[in-house]
Design a binder for these strands. Structure first.
Lengths: 233, 233
DNA sequence: TTGCACATTGAACGCTTGTATTGGATAATC
DNA sequence: GATTATCCAATACAAGCGTTCAATGTGCAA
């Protein structure tokens, strides 16, 4: 049962892998059981036999992707975009799952949403805690800070197709990933915005927030207090 | 023909608007002509009559969205996330289109890809030119810099559903948008990464790039030269 | 060998889809 | 006022979908 060669997997696993690929490429609605069966080299009936229904197959893919990604993230460094913890081997294993996740995030899968929320919580904890090399961000809205931080990372993955096209390299590969991470590092590190423009923008946004929300999400302290009162995990 | 009230549009426009909504919500494959017709309050046959086929309807939505978004972007400030040029009125008009675009980016529409590439070119031009308040970024790979910059913005829009859930506010609304933009501003402005960590990360990424690409995308100068040789528009 | 449980297949069914067609209502034109 | 064009609804139909099911192949215990 263990140590099988990559091409001698059980039919169930082959179907799951094919489904991950087909779901990632065509979306949940676009992928068909017949197409998945063809990609897995089995008959459509066998897919039904092993997973019962298309929705159950999707759930199985979801659970597998979530579990594997969580485990891989734990094994590597828990850092964000520029983490050196991605060994090439782990990257290969995770790659198809990330493609699937990218689609699932848009197609509305529960697993993808869970993964996103977990990442927000992890980001929040990391930003709030004392991580070496990371200073606590100065922000009036730590929650939004963590959400945006996570969203930036996930969002890039979701549009990896366009990123790859514009970059000329597959973003979900070692080279493209490194190139993107370095640019990301440049963006975070450099201060491209002039200080006076920053204060002007911030004033505009604060005014927008004051206008649209009334007392709900005030400009400075209350927002921070509210975010701090949220459960950190 | 002109000055019609919002609810007295021609049937063709009503169908198009409904299609934009349905495509945005269920994806291109998930949306059905019957569903679009129901949403527009017309018969399915009328959709066929006006647009010929589902694919043609999609193309019409694409063109309309691209043209309207381009025009709106031109009217407002050509800036990125924190631009104060988004008046509330323009925002309302653009909102459904952005939802559609978010889906179209993943479903693989030509218009969305065009919009993305245009944004990359615009970002590149802006970063390379002399925009007041914007300093030219210090990066070895200006092209990747512009691509990532654009991808960050587009990616956030694509996962707006998850952003809104995590934020507790609709991201594609005035309040959520402002809250997100402010957090984005905090992220770009603050230097959360310690300088020594930055150089370490950069060294790791440079090594990854040197390993994976060989002489194609070197660490420093050649990449910059290559990117500069690309057409700026 | 026999019996049995499981893996696997391929055909069939019901349903929804996109599309084509027919026909009627309404308004403009002569 | 008849005719024509345009707008619209309803129906019909072929294709593809997820799903079901009976039949066949396969490996293991008795």
């Amino acid at each position: 049962m263990r140590g099988r060669a990559a091409e001698e997997l059980t039919a169930r696993a082959r179907i799951r892998d094919a489904a991950l690929r087909e779901f990632a490429e065509h979306g949940v609605n676009g992928a068909t059981i017949r197409g998945i069966a063809r990609a897995a080299g089995v008959s459509p009936g066998l897919v039904q036999h092993h997973f019962g229904s298309k929705e159950a197959l999707r759930r199985a893919c979801d659970e597998y992707a979530v579990e594997t990604l969580k485990r891989t993230k734990l094994e590597g460094l828990s850092g964000g975009l520029g983490s050196p913890g991605y060994s090439a081997a782990a990257l290969d294993a995770v790659l198809p799952l990330q493609r699937y996740l990218a689609r699932a995030l848009v197609d509305g899968s529960p697993g993808a949403a869970e993964l996103f929320d977990d990442a927000v919580a992890a980001s929040k904890e990391m930003l709030g805690g004392d991580v070496p090399g990371l200073s606590r961000p100065k922000t009036a809205d730590p929650h939004a800070y963590a959400v945006v931080m996570t969203g930036l990372s996930f969002g890039l993955t979701v549009i990896h197709e366009h990123m790859s096209r514009a970059l000329g390299t597959d973003m979900l590969g070692a080279e493209g990933y490194a190139r993107m991470a370095r640019a990301m590092l440049d963006i975070i590190t450099d201060d491209i915005l002039a200080p006076d423009l920053v204060v002007q923008l911030r004033a505009t946004l604060d005014r927008m927030l004051a206008e649209s929300t009334g007392p709900r999400i005030p400009t400075s302290d209350a927002a921070a207090r509210k975010a701090d009162s949220d459960p950190p995990a």
